[in-house]
Amino acid sequence: MAAFDRQDGAAVARLYGAAGDASSDIDEACFLWTHAFVFALEAGLAEAEIYRAKLVAEGRER
C-alpha cells in the first residue's frame, strides 16, 4: 500500500508482477499480471510488454 500511497506506479506494477509470478493459480496469476500490465502501461515502462506477453500466452490479452 505504501507504493499506492506515494502513487509509484512502477513499484505497484512490479509488486503485482512478482505476486503473479509467485501464484500457482493461473486465474489468480492472470488477475495479478493484468494489474501489473495496466500500471506498467500507465507508467510507460517497457516491462509492460513482458506482462502483456504472459497474458497473451494464457489467452487473456492480445
Partner: peptide
C-alpha cells in the same frame, strides 16, 4: 508517460486514442 488510464475500471488508451487494455472485461484476469 504511457497510457491514459481511466481511474474507474482502468480501461487504458494510447496517446493515439486506441483502446489498449480492458482489464477483467471478460471476468477476473
Amino acid at each position: 508517460r504511457g497510457t491514459i488510464r481511466c481511474p474507474y475500471h482502468s480501461w487504458c488508451y494510447g496517446l493515439d486514442g486506441t483502446l489498449r487494455s480492458t482489464p477483467h472485461v471478460g471476468g477476473p484476469g
